[in-house]
């Protein structure tokens, strides 16, 4: 299985993502934002970080990179595209995912473990997560997901919501919402469910020494899905 991690100036989870992908059996290439061709790949990942310092709007300038045209082409052909944190922000700015990511409700950067409810368990990325609730880590300043009501309804109807912030028991409520996201949304799919953007960082939870291991489930699931 082949993966590609796009590196933007200011990406800072690119290495972490490559480490994770390799750990779970991908042969990964790093792709520079200014490149005009993608290598042969089964999965494209837009990693976390602060592409272009998050200047102007987070993800905005990254979405104008040359390689993004190719990423859009790849996605439109049904290829798997995953955006984590800043990568999610870029996918939204590039128009591959609906909605937008506003500043956190309490106007502060927030770095902590969160629980996520898995809302969609059969899609192009993963299926049969053995758990309904997983623990991952978030670290962002702009993770407050927003869509207009009619779009939200569309997301719900088409089963495009991937994860919601919840508490340890799976309760989705105001108090388990770390950033003010509408309906506690932590990650969404596109229409065809081959593009996924999410704020939490699965690549930071891939071994027992880190504060959890649920990121491993995530990657194993993608791998499993790709190999069938």
């Amino acid at each position: 299985m082949l993966s590609s991690v796009i590196v933007f100036p200011g990406s800072n989870c690119d290495r972490d993502m490559a480490v994770a992908l390799e750990k779970f059996g991908f042969k990964n290439s790093m792709v520079w934002h200014n490149d005009t061709e993608l290598p042969k790949t089964d999965l494209i990942v837009l990693p976390g970080g602060f592409s272009y310092g998050d200047y102007l709007r987070c993800g905005c300038i990254g979405s104008k990179s040359k390689i993004i045209e190719k990423v859009i082409e790849f996605a439109n052909k049904g290829g798997l595209v995953l955006g984590i944190c800043n990568g999610f922000q870029i996918l939204v700015e590039a128009g591959l995912l609906p909605g937008t990511l506003l500043r956190n409700k309490y106007l502060r950067f927030i770095c902590k473990d969160v629980y996520l409810k898995i809302k969609n368990n059969s899609n192009t990325f993963y299926s049969k997560f053995k758990k309904d609730i997983i623990k991952l880590h978030i670290a962002h300043n702009e993770g407050n997901y927003f869509v207009k009501n009619d779009e939200l309804k569309k997301l719900q109807d088409k089963n495009q919501i991937a994860f919601e912030y919840c508490d340890i028991n799976g309760e989705v409520s105001e108090s388990s919402n770390p950033n003010g996201s509408i309906n506690n949304i932590a990650g969404v799919f596109n229409d065809n469910q081959n593009v996924l953007g999410m704020m939490p960082h699965p690549e930071r939870m891939i071994d027992k020494y880190l504060s959890g291991n649920d990121g491993s489930l995530f990657f194993n699931n993608i791998k499993h899905k790709l190999s069938i």
């Binding site: 800072n12 989870c13 290495r15 972490d16 480490v19 994770a20 976390g48 502060r108 950067f109 927030i110 770095c111 902590k112 880590h137 670290a139 960082h201 690549e203 930071r204 891939i206 020494y209 880190l210 504060s211």
Partner: peptide, 13 residues
């Protein structure tokens, strides 16, 4: 410290 990213680089144990 919740306002500081303390887990980036994936090696904070």
């Amino acid at each position: 410290w919740k306002q500081y990213d303390h887990t980036v680089m994936g090696d904070t144990i």
